[in-house]
Design a protein around this nucleic acid. Sequence first.
DNA 1: GTTGAGCGC
Length: 98
Amino acid sequence: MTTIYVGNLPFSATEDEVRGIFERYGKVESVKLINDRETGRPRGFGFVEMPASDAQSAIQQTNGFQMGGRPLRVNEAQERAPRPKGPGGGGGGGPRRW
DNA sequence: GTTGAGCGC
């Protein structure tokens, strides 16, 4: 299973909407939209968990997909849990793909 | 009654 970062989401977007989009390109394991923990205000990005085979296809298909008038930013997500041995790398730190 | 970077407890 691969974790996918989904950004540039409209504040009016919901997890059900994002899941519906990704389910068209593969099996969606889980969807979580991130909102500000302190203020509760939506940050406009979230995460989608999918199988690796479906994730690679879904990323390319959903990247730039207009949702609510905004093109979605889809990319492979970083690891949420930091490793005590050292920091991770790659993925989100790379060049932007248009 | 608002806003816009980008990586979640």
